[in-house]
Design a protein around this nucleic acid. Structure first.
Lengths: 222, 222
DNA sequence: TTCAATGTTGATAGAGTCTTGATGTTTTAT
DNA sequence: ATAAAACATCAAGACTCTATCAACATTGAA
């Protein structure tokens, strides 16, 4: 039983979806215009059904725009059945793509699959992959790029793990220091700067530069 | 670049899948019999492609059995295209269902979507809001337009946040100064004017001009 | 204990940001 | 129409934060 948000310009389709999903005991909010809802409100739902062909801003545009801020699955529902549209939809951040006219049962099965997956506890993965590109082996405490290990020292690895597992979040030097060092240690903050430099140097050997500087704030992995 | 496991009884199909995904820089392990691999080994991969029709235990049986122990996405790949099979596959724990013969590009797009989703950090709803299609992420302290960040410096961002959060309200230069600067700083008011100019310039690159001048009073976001 | 690897520090160069004043432009009031 | 006031623009340089490097300290393994 989830809160599902459906956005479509066609009121009849919205009614159908709503009726159908409410029969499965979901709560459904329907919206005809994206402007009627805020990002925060979207995130309060568990899943977003998004029509593609709408007057003005279409579903692809909306997805591109909101995806970085939305943390729920986005499922496109559209009559556009050509392969390039499917690929586009999935590429810009869609989690699934359902073609109209759709089978009520399949839609429901797909929604259930997505909801189940959201609920699935993220076990402590032995390896996390960042950007589909850099692997971080949390057990072995290693960073691997294209099958090759980028050898890091303990502190260097810890900093990388912290930043990489929270990619997109800015960490201040102080924040990094506190996360990586034990309470009682009292080095100067500038050691963090030095570690960052060495880490960057090592990554640069592989033409990687994942750590960016946010001026006056700190460092960010992106 | 992920470690992908493909299970199918047909060696030819496995070769095809392997070749295709390796072209996309994934690492692919192929298995013809589920008995050749352990649960722990499966979990070391990032995604499982599972054939349905196999002699002995079929894909559905396997999925049912291992799903509670497997934490990676499972994608069925099968020629069984009838609705009830799709629904069954998704119901018993499959995360997606691809029908043979498949489009290489669509398979890849779906795999990418699943991998991206695994990498997606589970975050609280970001406290962000929209205005004129401009997103302001109060947590990340970023301004985003059409998925792209408009890079602002610290002070520039603060001014934008102040104005945008109170859109429709006019702020005097003095008001902006006091809101953005710390007590003890004593710059001239004209620096605010300069900041506004640079902010406008940055927004103008995207054909945006959210900040208007109210003569003799101050600035307003609308 | 010794040596090599790693971690820390401070000095300095470098890059990014902020501020200022001079100057040009637009608006308002007379 | 003109002057005064408010705002916009620009470039220079002051300022702040970051990157780099080399020297020194510490740790850990042989």
């Amino acid at each position: 039983m989830a809160n599902i948000l459906a956005i479509d310009d066609d009121a009849a389709i919205l009614r159908l979806i709503k009726k159908m999903l409410e029969m499965k005991n979901h709560t459904v909010t329907t919206i005809q215009d994206i402007k009627d809802i805020t990002i925060a409100e979207i995130n309060k739902h568990h899943l977003l059904l998004l029509d593609v062909m709408m007057p003005g801003e279409d579903g692809f545009d909306i997805c591109t725009k909101i995806r970085p801020l939305i943390h729920i699955p986005i499922i496109f529902m559209t009559a556009k059945s050509d392969e390039s549209s499917i690929i586009k939809g999935l590429s810009i951040g869609g989690d699934d793509y359902i073609i109209k006219p759709f089978s009520i049962h399949e839609v429901n099965a797909r929604i259930e699959a997505h909801l189940r997956r959201e609920a699935r506890p993220k076990r402590e993965a032995a390896s996390a992959f960042i950007d589909n590109n850099i692997f971080i082996d949390l057990e072995a405490k290693k960073v691997i790029f294209q099958g090759q290990e980028i050898t890091l020292t303990k502190i260097q690895y810890k900093i990388c793990e912290l930043l990489a597992l929270h990619k997109g979040k800015v960490f201040s030097k102080e924040g990094i220091y506190e996360a990586v060092y034990s309470m009682d240690s009292d080095s100067q903050i500038s050691t963090v700067v030095e570690h960052i430099r060495v880490i960057r140097k090592k990554f640069a050997q592989y033409n990687l530069s994942p750590i960016n500087t946010v001026w006056g704030v700190g460092y960010i992995w992106e």
